[in-house]
Simulated assay, not measured.
Amino acid sequence: MSGTGPIEEELAALPLVDHHCHGVVTGDVTTRRFESLITEGEVWPGMSPFDSPVGVAVRRYCAPLLDLPRHAPAEDYLARRAELGAAEVNRRFLSAAGTEVFCVDTGYAPDGLTTPGELAGAAGGGAVAHEVVRLESVAEAVGVAGVEPDEYAETFRAAAWEAVGRPGVVAVKSVAAYRTGFDLDPARPTAEEVTAAARRWSATGGGRLDDPVLVRHLLWTAVELGLPLQLHTGFGDNDIRLHRADPTHLTDWLHLTAGTVPVLLLHCWPYQRQAAYLSAVFEQVYFDVGLTLHYVGPGRARAVLAEAMEITPFRKLLYSSDAYGVAEFFPLGALAFRQGLAGLLRERVDADELSLPDALRIAQWAGRENALRVYRFSDDT
Results as ranks from 00 to 15, higher is better:
E75P: 05
V223E: 03
E35G: 08
P228Q: 11
E131I: 06
S95K: 00
Q284A: 06
A153L: 01
W161K: 12
L113H: 14
V285N: 10
W161C: 07
G206P: 04
F102K: 08
R200A: 12
M309S: 14
V223T: 14
P212S: 05
V58F: 02
A187Q: 12
V175R: 07
P247S: 02
R208S: 00
L229R: 07
A177I: 06
V29Q: 15
A163V: 07
A351D: 15
L332M: 03
V89A: 02
H20G: 09
F314Q: 13
G98I: 02
R179P: 00
Q230T: 05
F377D: 08
Y375L: 06
C62N: 11
H267L: 08
A359T: 13
V296A: 10
V172P: 07
E162G: 14
W220P: 11
G107L: 02
R59E: 00
L231N: 06
F34H: 15
A371Q: 05
E9V: 13
Q284E: 14
G98E: 01
T190K: 07
L219S: 09
V215L: 09
E8V: 15
E328L: 05
T204P: 05
A308G: 13
T106A: 11
G121L: 04
K173H: 06
L341Q: 05
L317N: 08
R208L: 01
V144G: 07
E353V: 05
R179M: 00
L345Q: 07
R273A: 15
H243L: 12
E10D: 06
Q274N: 14
V263I: 15
A120H: 01
T190H: 03
V128P: 00
V29N: 08
V304D: 04
G340V: 03
G168T: 11
P116G: 01
E192Y: 01
V170L: 08
P110H: 07
T257H: 12
V349R: 11
D358Q: 15
A197W: 10
R302A: 13
L84N: 14
Y108I: 08
G117H: 04
V261Y: 11
Q284R: 15
Y324F: 15
L84G: 12
A306H: 09
V29E: 14
L335Q: 08
R200G: 03
G181D: 08
G146M: 03
A13D: 07
Y178M: 13
G207A: 13
T312Q: 09
A145F: 01
E224D: 15
M1V: 09
V263K: 08
A276M: 11
L68D: 02
V175T: 14
L214V: 11
G181P: 03
I7V: 12
R81A: 09
V281Q: 05
L11G: 09
E9K: 11
L214M: 03
P298F: 00
R216A: 15
D379Y: 00
L305E: 02
P73L: 07
E40C: 05
V24H: 02
R368L: 03
G3N: 04
G367R: 03
W161V: 08
L231M: 15
Y77D: 06
P186E: 03
D111L: 12
V164D: 13
E369S: 12
P6Q: 05
A139N: 05
D51G: 04
G143Y: 09
G299K: 04
L135W: 00
D252P: 09
M47V: 02
H267K: 07
F329H: 15
